[in-house]
Design a protein around this nucleic acid. Structure first.
Lengths: 228, 228
DNA sequence: CTTGTTTGGTGTCTTAAGAACACTATGGCG
DNA sequence: CGCCATAGTGTTCTTAAGACACCAAACAAG
């Protein structure tokens, strides 16, 4: 932290710049996002997206990744720039330009959110149950959702929600949660397998008193490709 | 303009924010973009995208539209936010975050670019012939191009290049210039007409010593819809 | 006024992709 | 050993996309 008497001066007014992140996962078959309850004004007590101010010598992507790690303990996940919001009075304190990102966290993820150092409340919320968020964060979350759903159809982005090993039924659940509609099992498996993006691990998953399912893994887990 | 002794101070460093615009049109069947030759350092004499600093009480979209109008005389065209570039040393003077946009200008457009008040050189350049631009503007232009080509397939964005009245052959030329490949005339017309987005004006266009072409207009010229 | 040249305008068949649809297989449990 | 729950598998039909060739209208030239 800087000494309080230090200031930074410019010949023209400059806005502040933040990176804010919409963190998605699938929990119990429902699309959910990670929110932080604000400890201070403005919007004290409201839920908000994780994020924070850009360091002056830090790239935008790095800022988003750092804020995500600091505030939620999540790192190493898929992170993509979404859109930049800068309406003049979106933050009552000063002019703030928010460069927003969205992140996708694998289902299982040990990624149980750890509270930030300042012990703010952090938690997953089903996307469909969102009440209104701080600032313009509701609008941001909705745009992230539209982008995510759109990308389902022409990229391999859904695999970013999967753990290292998974079954085809689990993968289908993810697609169904995102599209909010049931899919035909045979058509789904046919299409996914024809893409040749996943392979069998050779193991089986026993998940109850019924036939066990084959386990699969993604061939290139970090890659998000455009398909079709 | 402000008095030079005025300064603006903040307890933390703030970056500058600009809006820069990739302006596309189709000229002589070739995709072209509008560039400005820089009159001052850095990159003096190089070609750059139109754009400039955000006013502190101005929305981002308004800034892009204003800079476009001021520097090129173009207004009232399709304008969409593209991506935000903020690498730490992309501008040698100070930390600058560039919120980029792309604009589409109708073919005919009286939109002959008028030079800005400071009489900088402004001109159209075929996209395929671009040499390297100032700052990271080459990268920005390439991303805008990728976005534009992608949107061709799932939106009605191409109509933004068309004048009020046009022929199907002209429309096909636009698609061919953007996709950089010839299209089958019959299949093209079948698909376009089946979308029910254009209608005949009733007039014909005489364009030489051959059969005249029917004129069409877009039903909702300002609307860009997602199709399929 | 006939002919040639140039671009405008049209339909059918083939092929590929997506949608609909129902039964057998395997393991756990009682 | 029989029941229950989820895993796994092919075919048919429908729809969209791609390939492909000729006649029409205006003008110019002779």
């Amino acid at each position: 932290m800087r000494a309080p008497e230090t200031t930074f001066s410019y010949p023209y007014p400059h806005p502040a710049v933040t990176a804010d992140v919409v963190v998605f996962t699938i929990r119990d078959g429902r699309l959910s996002i990670l929110l932080i309850r604000r400890a201070n004004p403005p919007y004290q007590g409201d839920w908000a997206l994780p994020g924070g101010f850009l360091d002056i010598d830090e790239d935008l992507d790095a800022c988003a990744a750092r804020e995500l790690a600091e505030e939620t303990g999540i790192s190493g996940v898929y992170l993509e720039q979404l859109y930049t919001f800068g309406a003049t009075h979106r933050d009552p304190r000063e002019r703030v330009i928010s460069v927003t990102y969205y992140a996708l966290v694998p289902q299982d993820a040990l990624a149980t959110p750890r509270a930030a150092s300042d012990a703010a409340e952090v938690g997953w919320h089903a996307f469909d149950d969102l009440t209104s968020l701080a600032f313009d964060h509701t609008e941001i979350a909705e745009m992230a959702h539209r982008r995510l759903v759109a990308k389902l159809d022409y990229s391999t982005i859904a695999f970013q929600f999967m753990p290292e090993a998974f079954t085809l039924s689990e993968l289908q659940c993810v697609y169904e949660a995102l599209r909010n509609q049931p899919l035909d099992k045979r058509n789904f498996r046919k299409r996914i397998l024809s893409l040749d993006l996943i392979e069998e691990t050779g193991r089986k998953r026993r998940n109850g008193k019924h036939r066990p399912a084959r386990e699969y893994r993604v061939r290139h887990p970090k890659r998000v490709e455009i398909i079709k």
